[in-house]
Amino acid sequence: MNTALFAQLVTLSSSVVLLFGITLLWRRSLTAYIDAFRWQSLVLSVLFVLIGYYSNDPELYLVAVFFFALKVIVLPIYLRRLQARVKVVNEIEPYINIATSLILAGLLVLLAYAVTRPLVAVSTLPTRGGLPLAMGLIFVGLLVVVTRKKALTQIVGFLVMENGIALLAALGTYGVPFIIELGVFLDVLMGFLVMQVFVYHIYGTFESIDVNQLSELKH
C-alpha cells in the first residue's frame, strides 16, 4: 500500500470516528447513543488493522481483535442491559440545546486543530492528518459528559472520550506496546463496571439516574 493512499484512508476513517462522536450531540435516544458508540468502535478497530497492515506490525491485529471484542460486543451488551434495568425513557434532556452543542463541538474541533498544530508541524508520520481529529474527539467526549444529565449518557460520553485517546495513541505512535494496550482495556472495563454499580446505586436511591439529583447530597 502506498503512503499517500494510506494517509488518505487514515484521515478518512478518523473523520468518520469523529463524526460518530458528534452524532451523540444531536441524537436523543439512548439506543442511538449506544449504536453510535458501537459503530465508532468498529471503524476504530478497522483503523487498527489498517495501521497494522501498513506498518507491518502483527501485534496491532491482536489489539484490533481485543478492541473489537470489548467495545463492539461486550460493552454495548452491558449498556443495553443497564438501559433495560434502569428503564431509562429514551428522552435525554441536555443542559445545552442541540444547536448550541453543535456549535460548541465545532469550536472545540477548531481548538483541537490549534493545539495540535505544533505536533502536526514537526511530525513526518503519514498518520499526522488524523491527530487533530483524535484530539477533537476527546473534547467532544468531554462535552457530552459535561452537558448530559443522565448517568448512562455520561458513561457513553466517557467511553467515546476513551476512544479518542485510543485513536490518538494509535495515530501518534502506531499503537502503544501490546501490554500497555491490554492494561488500558482492563482499565476501561473496570471503570465501566464501577460506573455501572454507581448507576444502580443512584437509581436505587433516587428512582432515577438524573445526576442532577446528586446535588441534594450536599447538605
Binding site: Y95, L111, A114, V115, R117, P118, L142, L143, V145, V146, T147, K149, V211, N212, L214, S215, E216, L217, K218, H219
Partner: peptide, 25 residues
C-alpha cells in the same frame, strides 16, 4: 465553588484542561 453539582465539577475539570492546553500552546 463547591455547589454540589456534578456537572459544575466536570466543567471545572474541562476548563482547566482547555486552559492548560491553550497555555502550553
Amino acid at each position: 465553588l463547591q455547589a454540589g453539582s456534578l456537572h459544575l465539577y466536570l466543567v471545572y475539570v474541562v476548563i482547566v484542561l482547555l486552559v492548560l492546553l491553550i497555555a502550553t500552546r
